[in-house]
């Protein structure tokens, strides 16, 4: 009798999902998470301090290397004009990324559905990709009236390709047995896309999104460099060129800082989106318990 109750109790513990919680393990995980933020930030602050110190100590002129404090000062002083430029670049980057997603996914779906369409159109997509955008940009700027539209096209060309190729591969990556199962259950093409092909393609698409996010920004900046400072409303790249003409090195650094910041924000956003979408099932986003 007493043996029986012991067994029951033991089983009860297991059924409550009660593997004893390893407190030391949890603590270590939290410490690691905090460290992953604290360490890089500390390093960055130290590096900036050293930079500031070296510039002051050696009295390096500001037209060679400006001190971080001066860059910060410039950021505040030129806040209005730099913000307007940032907004322009943000708009350009995100709009081109959005169009790259729409175009890449639609064309990718078309490629995945029809082999002839893929065979006839894919070479052109490749040509568009391998030709450096700097080389095409002047032509696009000549043929397209609106500067914004021309820049948009340039950034789009760069960001579009990874989304296209990954969507095609992703849509083809669905498990063969699951495909057979859908065939046996006489699923409609729409059901097959909605419940099998699209979810299978998601990990590939999210990986492409992370690449394309960075590329859209690069495309936007490069295109603007080619376009020069022409036009009233221009982005951060134009501020950099303009400052370089006037030898306003601190302002160049300030604009560069904002471009980097935008890149980081895009990276964090796409990583967050990827985690949101795949976190509950895909190997790439699951934290393994050690």
């Amino acid at each position: 009798m007493s043996t029986k109750s012991t067994t029951d109790r033991t089983r009860g513990v297991h059924e409550d999902g009660g593997a004893p919680i390893n407190i030391g393990h949890l603590r270590r995980a939290r410490r690691e998470r905090i460290l992953s933020w604290v360490m890089p930030i500390t390093l960055l602050v130290v590096a900036i301090c050293i930079w500031e110190f070296l510039v002051r100590y050696h009295e390096i002129p500001k037209y060679l290397i400006p001190a971080p404090s001066l860059i910060a000062e410039t950021l505040v002083r030129d806040f209005a004009s730099l913000m307007a430029s940032s907004w322009f670049t943000v708009k350009l980057t995100f709009l081109s990324l959005a169009l790259a997603i729409v175009g890449g996914v639609l064309l990718g779906a078309l490629f995945a559905l029809s082999r002839p369409v893929e065979l006839s159109l894919f070479p052109f997509a490749v040509i568009l990709q391998v030709t450096p955008v700097v080389a095409i940009a002047p032509l696009i700027l000549i043929y397209v009236d609106s500067t914004f539209a021309a820049l948009l096209i340039c950034a789009w060309i760069v960001a579009f390709f990874p989304i296209l190729t990954n969507t095609v591969v992703g849509l083809r990556s669905a498990d063969h047995n699951l495909r057979d199962l859908f065939t046996m259950y006489r699923a409609t093409p729409w059901q097959k896309l909605r419940y099998l092909l699209a979810p299978s393609a998601l990990p590939y698409f999210m990986a492409a999104l992370r690449v394309a996010g960075g590329l859209a920004l690069i495309g936007a900046v490069v295109a603007e460099f080619v376009a020069g400072t022409a036009g009233q409303h221009t982005g951060l790249a134009s501020r950099i060129i303009e400052s370089s003409f006037r030898s306003e090195i601190p302002r160049m650094f300030a604009a560069l800082f904002l471009v980097s910041l935008l890149g980081i924000v895009i990276f964090l956003l796409t990583s967050w989106a990827s985690h949101r979408v795949l976190g509950h099932w895909h190997e790439s986003e699951i934290r393994r318990e050690l």
Binding site: L181, F182, Y185, W281
Partner: peptide
């Protein structure tokens, strides 16, 4: 041959959904 992105419930529900 389960869909890794779907819960056990949704996996079993599949034939009915289709």
């Amino acid at each position: 041959t389960l869909k890794p992105w779907a819960s056990v419930f949704d996996n079993v529900y599949l034939p009915l959904r289709l």
